[in-house]
């Protein structure tokens, strides 16, 4: 963790927080990490919704794409733009998938994409940050935040764990509450390849 911590600090915060790195030896130069990245298909976009009495629904989205731009020295204006196809939802249960695609939840034939566009990024720790931006789903746009933690970095590749809690009622998707929680917990592994 220490190495990653140091790397991430170097990656994102070196210019603004030159002292934050814990191990100066391993800090890569900023030129190494700044730049535009494409989110690779090897990433995973997983979510879960709790249910009364324990357990719940766990699922993934298979189709998504996005880019992010790590701005050297200007972390706050680093940009993330992400899109997913709700129709690609997979819970392991066809009937649940069909229900999620239906008008009751995503209405994926009407609203083909769910998108997120960052507005600002703030550092929350040596290897973590919080991204705030606009999430648009089912024709509704709301401000949401995700917590990002660096998990791996090597050469042209970088990986983050991204988590967030979204209230589905804000997007007119609150069917089934209170049996199923209003909170959708996202747990994503975002891999970026620098282009």
């Amino acid at each position: 963790m220490t190495r990653k911590t140091a790397l991430f600090t170097a990656l994102l915060f070196a210019v603004s927080f030159p002292q934050a790195g814990q191990s100066a030896v391993e800090v890569p130069s900023l030129a190494e990490v700044a730049g535009r990245y494409a989110i690779t298909p090897g990433s995973s976009i997983a979510f879960s919704v709790g249910q009364v009495g324990g357990g719940g629904i766990k699922g993934k989205f298979g189709k998504f794409s996005g880019t992010f731009n790590l701005k050297a020295g200007d972390l706050a204006h680093s940009m993330v733009s992400f899109e997913l196809k709700p129709e690609s939802v997979m819970t392991g249960q066809d009937r649940i998938d069909a229900f999620l695609r239906s008008g009751a939840v995503f209405d994926s034939s009407q609203f083909e994409t769910i998108s997120f566009r960052s507005e600002h990024v703030e550092q929350t720790g040596p290897d973590s940050a919080r991204i705030t931006g606009t999430l648009t789903a089912k024709g509704r746009s709301m401000s949401e935040s995700f917590d990002v933690t660096l998990t791996a970095w090597s050469g042209r590749m970088i990986a983050f764990n991204v988590s967030g809690r979204i209230f589905r009622s804000r997007y007119a998707m609150d069917v089934g509450t209170p049996i199923y929680s209003n909170v959708v917990q996202f747990d994503m592994m975002i891999k970026g390849e620098r282009n």
Partner: peptide
């Protein structure tokens, strides 16, 4: 049912 949808009687009592 493999869907395991809880029976939450009148949104008050979870019927196992």
């Amino acid at each position: 049912s493999p869907l395991e949808i809880p029976t939450f009687a009148f949104n008050l009592v979870v019927v196992p």
